[in-house]
Design a protein around this nucleic acid. Sequence first.
DNA 1: GTATCGATGATCT
DNA 2: GATCATCGATACC
Length: 190
Amino acid sequence: MIIMSNDSLFLEPTRDVARALLGCVLFRVTEHGRVAGRIVETEAYVDDDPANHASRGKTKRNASMFGPPGHAYVYRIHQVFCLNIVTRPEGVGEAVLIRAVEPTEGLDIMAARRKTDKPRLLASGPGRLCQAFDIDKSLDGMPLDGDGLGLYRADQPVTQIVTRPRVGISRGVDKPLRFYIADNEYISKR
DNA sequence: GTATCGATGATCT
DNA sequence: GATCATCGATACC
């Protein structure tokens, strides 16, 4: 079952959304075909959170974080892109960063984009994921409604969730807002 | 206008 | 484990 961008899931507290997205399947359809993967690692970026791009108000870059829930916030960091899903009622500025998926469909397409055959290197990391899924700034602000980019609800709830501090940030480092499926091969390291 | 700094990844040791 | 590629948004003057 597809999770539409207006699903009430996105109105739950953002850390709960981050946990609920584990086990869901992210998919993308382009002219190259269809790719999909099971979400195995997420991070929550919340209100009153110095690591959150939205924490210092709305700017041109983070504008879609203040847009409707269930839509994408895509930004560039260094030379790569990262995909977030906006949560909460419009205007709050919270989101979930999708950090890693376990590839399930279209591995050959991902391998071509990533220039590697190793399944573990296809989408284990936010930048790798975006490269494998052909996600760039043009998807910033777009709904995840299954037209090009979409989500399937998890077949079964994920029970073994590990909670840790977030990765790669310099502020808000103490907050335990990174979540991943225990013992999964496809989480990003560090 | 100019400087700085990342929610990263690849590569080398 | 360390370095650096590379670029745009943001901060600062």
